[in-house]
Every structure is written in C-alpha cells, then in structure tokens.
C-alpha cells in the first residue's frame, strides 16, 4: 500500500497538530509552528516508511519546530506575548482570519485565545511537562513515543505528563473535560501501552 496523498494527512492530522502547537507555544506562535511543521513534513513525506505512525512522526517534527519558534521568540523584543501579531502569511495569502482579528482589535479574538488563565497556567509549566501533556492528551501519543520525541525515558515521560496535568488541574479547577476523537486516539494509545509495556 502506497503513501496516501499528503492532502489527506493535512486534513486528518492538521487540527490535532494545531491544537498541540497552541498548547506548546501559545496562540501567537502556534500558526508559525504548524506551518513549519507541515512544510518540513511535506518535504520528508516521500521517504516516510509506509507503516510509520503518522501522529508520532508529525509530533516529532512539531516538537523540533516548536523549539525553533520559542528560541526565535526569545530573541525578539519583549511584549510579544501580550500583543497578538497578525499571522505571518507568506506573500499575503495568509487569508482573511488573522488580519481581520488584528485590524478589529482584541474583540475579534476567540474566547480560548483570550483565556489568560489557561495561557498563564501552561506557561507556568516546565517545558518538558507542557510538551508531555500536549503530546499525551491532545495528540494521544503513548508515553513510550513521547519519550522518544522528547529524549527522556518512558517513566520520565509518564511522570512529566502526570505532573503537568495535575498542576494544570490545580490551576484551572472545575473545567469540564471534553470527549472527542482525540480521546478515542488516546484510549487506543493507552490500550496499546497497557497491553505492551506497562510494568
């Protein structure tokens, strides 16, 4: 079975990767990280083994791109975190969404983007925990794969996700969980892990 058209990969996994990018680098840099991730993925795609797990492959690339984006961000002047930038839209094909939002001011921002509590809580996490939480709970990666992506042991990855979600729940009590496809993926990942390698 040959590789599927890349368009299908974008359709199927694009939303998950965007959510992961938002959780890991915040709302303002997420679209840069997503774009860098999918362009790099497109470049490497023909060489991808046909039995590769697409989620883990994309998250691996997104992890590297997120680090790049954060590094670039730390070299920029202050106030980047406070002032929403228009998405850098290549040669002006960025589309109507981002420019409209910035032109009309903060009132156009969606509620999740203005959720300062959420962003403060995520920013307060050590980077490794923030990544592990996103990769586990949003991408549905098992701890073994998170370990491979982030370069730690499986136990350390499990601890990072666990400590991360515990402190998020403490900072943001009473928020309602959400049942989604990501949840289904997560359960499958859990089941694999439970069958395979949980001590």
């Amino acid at each position: 079975m040959a590789l599927r058209p890349f368009e299908e990969i974008v359709t199927e996994y694009g939303p998950m990767v965007l959510r992961v990018c938002r959780a890991v680098v915040g709302p303002h840099d997420a679209e840069d990280a997503w774009s860098e991730t999918f362009l790099a993925a497109l470049r490497a795609y023909p060489e991808l083994p046909e039995d590769a797990r697409i989620e883990a492959w994309l998250v691996t690339i997104a992890h590297r791109k997120a680090i790049d984006v954060v590094r670039a961000d730390s070299r920029r002047p202050l106030a980047v975190a406070e002032v929403p930038e228009p998405a850098v839209g290549g040669s002006g094909t960025g589309g109507p969404g981002a420019p409209a939002a910035s032109a009309n001011g903060q009132a156009q921002q969606p509620p999740w983007e203005r959720d300062e509590e959420l962003w403060d809580a995520l920013k307060a996490l050590p980077r490794r925990q923030r990544a592990a939480v996103a990769y586990h709970y949003l991408a549905g990666l098992p701890y073994r794969e998170i370990a491979a992506v982030t370069g730690v042991s499986t136990d350390a990855a499990r601890r990072a996700a666990s400590d991360g979600i515990t402190s998020l729940r403490r900072s943001l009590p009473g928020r309602t969980e959400q049942r989604t496809d990501a949840g289904a993926r997560q359960r499958r990942a859990h089941q694999r892990e439970e069958r395979g390698e949980r001590p």
Binding site: R169, T176, E177, R179, R187
Partner: peptide, 10 residues
Amino acid sequence: PAVPGPLAAL
C-alpha cells in the same frame, strides 16, 4: 477518556 478540562478550551 476525554481531553482533560484544562485543555478542553483549545
């Protein structure tokens, strides 16, 4: 299993 509450806003 659901997306935990703190992340459900995304």
